[in-house]
Every structure is written in structure tokens, then in C-alpha cells.
């Protein structure tokens, strides 16, 4: 074991936790927005997957040699790619809205349609080894150098460099990571302190009453599902445009469902979702690090944790999850 191993592992764990939690948080926010508006969204997984794909393909298309250099410049190209991912998510959100509001399809079935559709479409249009000109760069690079940092030797195998190590956690991140934090803050505030938030929560709790008060329930549901879809789309875009830089078939590997778990775990609140995502991310990161230190604990059993915890919370064994009262039901206006 080299001397700095524990220090490195610490930073790696924290950074992994953050990277893991970004798409999960965005997915959970998508779920929150939809469920607060009275529509259950189990299609987050599919929205993420398809958006990850279209965002990536936009990046691939714009990276082709015949495209004008003005469009190929990293900021323009990647902004367009992220926009495509957002739009894809938003459109799937609208599809979910049309199916479950206009056609009164069971919301779970509609979500399932989106999941299967995304899996099929991405598989069908998938191209092996499509090249791009690169993914999202770090928004801010670490301003601190390691050489100029103070070396703190806390133990034989634990050395930290300050402020270099802190810089590695706070800076060196892409745009979407910072944006996620902003969105959590904005949504957490807007949902509980604005007229829009009050209306959204009211149609999720009691649409009849909201309708009586003159709130256009359906229009608000459509808007919020579009926004919710965009959030899931951003989560998908993060995977292919910021984290991995490549698309692989079925690459969301259940993140949309972990997001659902996190949403419940966080009691349908944005900050709670962020906390839950960080917690699950930390468990996953820790498990990976433990293995490197020769501690043998099966990662699958750690992987079960989010799901078990969700059931525990949902069943009211610890605390009590409070879903929006009308979530998942069909609302029909009178007359």
C-alpha cells in the first residue's frame, strides 16, 4: 500500500458519490415534479435512456467533418447536444401526459410504454463506435496546484494536500453537475414558495378543489410533465455528454428506477432527493473502494441497499413516506 492511498481513496469516493448522484438526482426531481402534479412517472428510465442517446447522436452528427466549424466549436456543439437531450426528455414527458391525461391510459402502463420504446429505439438506431469531438469539459478547473498546497500527513497512509484536494472536489466538474445543484435549490424553493408551486402541489393533492378555484389542472399537468421530462433528459444527457462521453445500449441500467427510489426516500422533496442520491452514491462508492482495500463484501448486496431502504421507508417502518394524495389517479373534469 503506498503512502497516499487513503487520501486518494477519500477524494475518489467523494467524487464518485457526486458523479453518481447527478443523474439520479435529476431523475428523482423529474419524478417529484410529475407526482406532485398528480401523475406517476415510472418512465424516467426510458426518458433518460432516449435523451442520453439523442444527445449523444447530436454530438456525433455535429462532430462529422462536413459540419461547419462554427457549429463544431465545443460550446456551440455541446450546448446543442444538451438541448437535444432536454427536448427529447420533454417530448417523452409530453407523450406521457398525452397518454395518461388525454387518453386516460393507466399511468404505470404509459410509463412502461416509454421504457420499452426507449430501449427499442436506442437499440434500433444504435451505431457502434460512433466518434465525437469530445464531451463537456470542466466548467472550472482546479485553481490550486498540488505543489503549492500544504501537505497534511495525518497518518502513515493518509496524506491530504490543502487546498488542492478540496479544489478537486469543488471544482473540476462539468456544467450539468453545478446546474443540478442549482435546479435542486430552485425547485425546492419554487415548489413551496411560489404560486406555481402551490398550484402544482394542489393538483397533486386535490385536483377537484384546485379546479374549483380556477386552476387549469390539465394545462399545469402538461407543463409540469414537459419540465419533468426535460429534467430526466438532462440526467440522460449527463451520462453521454458529461460523464461517459459514449453511448452504450441500455446504459442507464436502472438509474431511472433508483431515481424513483430516491424520490420516495426523499419524501417527494427536492432536497430530500439530493440527500438520498448522495447517500446511495456514497454507499456505491464506498463499496468500490472497500474492494480495492481488500475488504471483500459483495457489491451486489450493497447494490440492493437503495431498493430495500425504499421499501422500508414506503412501508412506514422508519419514518413515513407521504406521497401526493392524488398521484396516479385519473382526474376528470366535470361536465
Amino acid at each position: 500500500m503506498s503512502e497516499t492511498e487513503l487520501g486518494l481513496a477519500l477524494i475518489a469516493t467523494i467524487n464518485f458519490t457526486i458523479r453518481y448522484s447527478v443523474p439520479i438526482t435529476l431523475g428523482a426531481l423529474s419524478g417529484i415534479l410529475c407526482e406532485r402534479s398528480g401523475i406517476v412517472n415510472i418512465g424516467i428510465e426510458g426518458m433518460m435512456l432516449l435523451a442520453a442517446f439523442t444527445g449523444f447522436m447530436a454530438n456525433v452528427t455535429l462532430s462529422e467533418p462536413q459540419v461547419s466549424p462554427a457549429l463544431q466549436a465545443a460550446p456551440v456543439r455541446l450546448t446543442l447536444a444538451v438541448a437535444v437531450a432536454l427536448l427529447t426528455g420533454g417530448l417523452l414527458g409530453l407523450l406521457h401526459a398525452v397518454l395518461s391525461i388525454q387518453y386516460k391510459v393507466d399511468q404505470i402502463v404509459s410509463g412502461t410504454v416509454i421504457n420499452i420504446l426507449a430501449l427499442g429505439l436506442t437499440g434500433y438506431f444504435y451505431r457502434l463506435n460512433a466518434p465525437t469531438l469530445g464531451k463537456l469539459p470542466n466548467l472550472i478547473d482546479n485553481p490550486f496546484g498540488r505543489d503549492s498546497s500544504l501537505e497534511l500527513k495525518l497518518a502513515d497512509n493518509l496524506t491530504l494536500y490543502l487546498p488542492y484536494d478540496i479544489g478537486r472536489i469543488i471544482f473540476d466538474k462539468d456544467l450539468i453537475t453545478y446546474l443540478t445543484l442549482v435546479i435542486v435549490f430552485v425547485l425546492g424553493w419554487a415548489l413551496f414558495h411560489t404560486t406555481w408551486g402551490l398550484r402544482t402541489r394542489s393538483i397533486g393533492e386535490n385536483p377537484r378543489a384546485a379546479d374549483t378555484l380556477g386552476i387549469n389542472v390539465y394545462r399545469l399537468q402538461y407543463t409540469n410533465l414537459f419540465l419533468g421530462g426535460m429534467l430526466a433528459g438532462l440526467g440522460g444527457g449527463f451520462l453521454t455528454l458529461a460523464a461517459v462521453g459514449l453511448f452504450e445500449q441500455g446504459m442507464t441500467t436502472g438509474r431511472g428506477f433508483i431515481a424513483l427510489a430516491v424520490m420516495i426516500f426523499g419524501n417527494w422533496r427536492p432536497w430530500g432527493a439530493l440527500r438520498g442520491a448522495l447517500l446511495f452514491g456514497f454507499a456505491t462508492a464506498l463499496q468500490g473502494q472497500l474492494q480495492q482495500f481488500g475488504i471483500d463484501f459483495p457489491h451486489q448486496l450493497v447494490g440492493m441497499l437503495p431498493y430495500i431502504l425504499t421499501i422500508v421507508v414506503l412501508a412506514g417502518f422508519v419514518g413515513r413516506a407521504q406521497p401526493p394524495a392524488f398521484s396516479g389517479k385519473v382526474y376528470e373534469t366535470e361536465g
Partner: peptide, 23 residues
């Protein structure tokens, strides 16, 4: 007995089963 919605619990049980079998 706990009024936990079957859609969510069965989804969670899917992933628990997959991870468990994987282990």
C-alpha cells in the same frame, strides 16, 4: 398491511432479486 403501493414495491423487489441472483 403497510399500504405500500404494489407498483413501487414490486419494482424495488425486481432490482433486489436481480442483485441477489447476481450475487
Amino acid at each position: 398491511y403497510a399500504d405500500a403501493h404494489e407498483v413501487i414495491t414490486t419494482i424495488m423487489l425486481n432490482y433486489i432479486a436481480a442483485q441477489f441472483a447476481g450475487w
